[in-house]
Amino acid sequence: MASQGTKRSYEQMETDGERQNATEIRASVGKMIDGIGRFYIQMCTELKLSDYEGRLIQNSLTIERMVLSAFDERRNKYLEEHPSAGKDPKKTGGPIYKRVDRKWMRELVLYDKEEIRRIWRQANNGDDATAGLTHMMIWHSNLNDTTYQRTRALVRTGMDPRMCSLMQGSTLPRRSGAAGAAVKGVGTMVMELIRMIKRGINDRNFWRGENGRKTRSAYERMCNILKGKFQTAAQRAMMDQVRESRNPGNAEIEDLIFLARSALILRGSVAHKSCLPACVYGPAVASGYDFEKEGYSLVGIDPFKLLQNSQVYSLIRPNENPAHKSQLVWMACNSAAFEDLRVLSFIRGTKVSPRGKLSTRGVQIASNENMDAMESSTLELRSRYWAIRTRSGGNTNQQRASAGQISVQPAFSVQRNLPFDKPTIMAAFTGNTEGRTSDMRAEIIRMMEGAKPEEMSFQGRGVFELSDERAANPIVPSFDMSNEGSYFFGDNAEEYDN
């Protein structure tokens, strides 16, 4: 993207840094990872977990959730003011799984939030270390993106479920800051804005008074975040219109849905970061690795190297396929839920299948599930090659597409044709070009129609051997075009429920 120079890199967003050079960025990201790792080690000690239990991804998720809940100030305040039966607002906890007599047992633990905050700050040299908290939120978000298709949420806001490739980060909490905003897809931002506008339509006082002023500035800020994701002048001009509207209503909703559809071809720039579970960072720190000293990046080879040398386990339900569970977590670790499966298959070195073909449910185990038949197995999170994460949407291309997802959002900077089903997408653009945004709409449609099938995206960008740390010898991959490109292809993934 041309304006790259004016933006802070995501590592800076990730670490609240002012302008830093590459070495400083690597050190501050490393410091953040160190903090998460030290916190995780301490929690495993508190909970008396064995090494194996500490490497269980379900335990990692519970521990991450506990610290996120302990620092969720708004919710904590709300819980104190609106006490609900049987919930102690000062405590947080969740299921911890232990191996007892050759069987997995679930144990519900409860801790004072104050105590968890103390352990977290102690692991982070006394700081609140917001960057580390956001990092864990993005890992949870990436896992949700890989596990669930947001059909219901899309339909509720009037969008087409086939636009799911635009929904990265749709389950990120509001408090995820600049680093969170960077990884949100165009569809996620559109959905947040539509929800806001709908509230304004239904509630006369939404934009009024002292609160209304705050609401208005939040609305304009979200519009600017979305505008910054678009790469064409016409899309940005249309966002200006939406932002400046005196009284946002149905016309703005129409414009936003139009823009979301246009992003299936004229893709937005959305950041991709490899955020790993805390149970990967903990053992690495415990083994003596100093992330701050060595430096770390979320968008280069580092996460690949770390996963190459990590042992992570997962509980497996009786009829689940461990290899499929591994694929789910591998995609989440690489922030690749909406990437082209052919690119992923090449990088991973084994075939990556669409969601609907995987015999696996989510990673988390519900409290009512029976533990008797639970097994555990090693997650295979290694890769054959590594590639640089991208934040450009890439230019655009036609490809055989599917009944489910009709476009992709690249996660890796790797040369390819970008699949999208042009006739299906263009069919949504018939007729409606009147109104105050008509010239911009016409211009956007013209650009979409001009998108050429034979153009290559990320020209000359390749993948790298894991021994090639400096990215000196790019390998331009070859793809098996007979395979499906979309992950949520004609899909039956479970729906995400809060």
Results as ranks from 00 to 15, higher is better:
216 R>Q: 10
324 H>R: 06
378 T>E: 14
108 L>C: 13
106 R>Q: 04
485 G>E: 08
470 R>S: 06
469 E>R: 03
346 F>Q: 04
471 A>R: 10
12 Q>R: 00
98 K>V: 01
80 E>C: 00
365 I>H: 09
77 K>H: 00
465 E>C: 10
141 S>P: 14
54 G>D: 07
35 G>R: 03
225 I>L: 15
42 Q>I: 05
243 R>M: 01
484 E>L: 15
128 D>T: 13
441 R>V: 07
37 G>H: 08
222 M>T: 14
221 R>M: 12
360 T>E: 10
164 C>N: 15
32 M>G: 14
184 K>W: 09
297 S>T: 08
312 V>G: 03
416 R>M: 12
128 D>G: 12
113 K>L: 04
321 N>S: 15
334 N>H: 02
83 P>H: 02
256 L>K: 10
247 N>C: 03
208 R>Y: 06
472 A>Y: 12
26 R>D: 06
361 R>D: 10
383 S>L: 12
204 R>Y: 12
228 G>T: 02
191 M>D: 10
196 M>F: 13
110 L>C: 07
113 K>N: 13
23 T>A: 01
434 E>R: 00
42 Q>F: 12
52 Y>L: 07
242 V>Y: 10
348 R>G: 15
226 L>Q: 03
105 M>E: 01
164 C>S: 04
31 K>H: 14
426 M>L: 06
257 I>Q: 03
136 M>A: 03
275 C>L: 09
232 T>D: 10
492 N>R: 07
120 W>V: 04
175 R>F: 07
249 G>T: 06
224 N>A: 14
238 M>S: 04
168 Q>H: 08
347 I>L: 00
470 R>N: 11
39 F>W: 02
80 E>H: 01
146 T>V: 13
122 Q>F: 07
462 G>W: 10
169 G>P: 03
428 A>H: 13
85 A>D: 00
163 M>N: 14
49 L>P: 09
256 L>I: 03
154 L>V: 14
206 F>P: 01
465 E>V: 04
481 M>R: 15
340 D>V: 15
476 V>L: 04
114 E>L: 01
21 N>I: 02
462 G>K: 10
311 Q>E: 06
57 I>L: 15
287 S>G: 14
84 S>A: 15
297 S>A: 07
422 K>Y: 13
68 L>K: 04
293 K>G: 07
427 A>M: 14
15 T>V: 13
192 E>K: 02
437 T>Y: 13
297 S>I: 10
436 R>N: 08
355 R>P: 10
54 G>M: 12
396 T>I: 06
326 S>A: 07
446 R>S: 06
39 F>H: 06
284 A>F: 07
240 D>V: 12
11 E>M: 07
436 R>S: 13
147 T>I: 14
94 G>V: 08
220 E>A: 02
69 S>W: 10
290 D>Q: 06
457 S>V: 01
444 I>Q: 14
214 K>G: 05
335 S>H: 03
222 M>P: 08
45 T>R: 00
422 K>M: 13
116 I>A: 01
166 L>F: 06
334 N>A: 00
258 F>T: 10
457 S>D: 06
149 Q>C: 08
158 G>E: 10
192 E>D: 01
74 R>D: 10
74 R>H: 00
389 R>F: 02
409 Q>I: 02
223 C>N: 09
213 R>C: 07
160 D>T: 04
353 S>K: 09
362 G>C: 11
152 R>H: 07
364 Q>F: 14
203 D>R: 06
241 Q>L: 03
483 N>E: 12
3 S>W: 12
366 A>K: 10
350 T>R: 03
440 M>T: 05
454 E>P: 15
192 E>P: 08
1 M>W: 10
305 K>A: 04
422 K>S: 01
451 A>D: 05
119 I>F: 15
5 G>R: 00
7 K>W: 11
162 R>A: 01
477 P>R: 15
160 D>H: 09
270 V>A: 03
49 L>E: 01
137 M>Y: 10
106 R>S: 01
95 P>A: 01
334 N>Q: 07
22 A>D: 04
42 Q>W: 08
155 V>E: 04
398 Q>H: 15
52 Y>E: 06
117 R>Q: 02
181 A>S: 05
196 M>W: 12
398 Q>L: 03
444 I>P: 09
342 R>G: 02
328 L>K: 03
385 Y>M: 02
161 P>H: 12
78 Y>N: 13
432 N>I: 01
86 G>W: 06
343 V>N: 12
25 I>F: 08
203 D>C: 10
189 M>W: 04
131 A>R: 00
434 E>T: 00
446 R>H: 04
68 L>Y: 10
72 D>Q: 03
442 A>G: 03
315 L>Q: 08
34 D>G: 02
93 G>S: 05
299 V>D: 10
203 D>W: 10
220 E>M: 08
359 S>M: 07
121 R>N: 03
422 K>C: 01
21 N>A: 07
271 A>K: 13
105 M>V: 14
124 N>L: 04
42 Q>P: 05
214 K>D: 12
337 A>E: 06
251 A>K: 10
467 S>V: 13
424 T>V: 00
28 S>I: 04
214 K>V: 02
256 L>P: 13
68 L>I: 04
349 G>Y: 10
166 L>W: 10
137 M>V: 07
434 E>D: 02
164 C>P: 02
309 N>L: 00
440 M>Q: 02
19 R>I: 10
21 N>R: 00
167 M>N: 07
2 A>V: 05
123 A>T: 07
144 N>F: 13
214 K>H: 15
390 T>A: 04
